[in-house]
Amino acid sequence: MRVSGSVRILVTSGLVLVWAMPQVVAVQVWYWMTNFQNGVVNYVLTELHVGNYFQHDWYATTFSQLGLVTALIVWGALPFVAITIYAALSQVPGELVEAAEIDGARPWRVFLDVTLPILRPVLLILTSLSILWDFGVFTQPYLLIGQAHLNPSNYLMGIYLFEEGYLKADYGRGAAISILMLLLVAAMSVFYVRRMVKIGDVD
């Protein structure tokens, strides 16, 4: 709505391309790009004078490893979130926005009092789905950080579960971790689910 039609089509098709990339493929490409010797990320950051990233090892510290995993997951999740919000935005009735503008509302107030309430159910669903999907994330951290660099200080819940319940075949502990993960996810999404139920009541 704020950008030209051609830019909108460009961005949307780019997002769909990212969406279409299988997780394993995405991890592999990110791994090449962040390789410390000939990774293109180090090259570009150095060329853009962001700093000297020549042979910078992104897998040297836990912080940097988890930062990369976060970037990868956000990159992979963005298309779904962006396209869903875009679809929701196109459902906001133009008359409502126009009426608010005629009543003298500034753009920021129009957003807060007209657009946001209409978007709220979609935002709630997106937030709880993202929590559900990404809390148990396994593929990206396991493959990107890799066997060589994995150690308990950079485990995520999913990797801990895999290590105990699968590699060590400790079924009891595996089951216990699974239930704890489930409880944590439930606790985190209960707020959003309650809000969604409330919105459903009003309608």
Partner: peptide, 16 residues
């Protein structure tokens, strides 16, 4: 902003 977003998002696809 849209074009920068496009370039950053699509870069891994292009690189593949």
């Amino acid at each position: 902003v849209g074009i920068v977003l496009f370039v950053v998002m699509v870069f891994p696809v292009f690189w593949m």
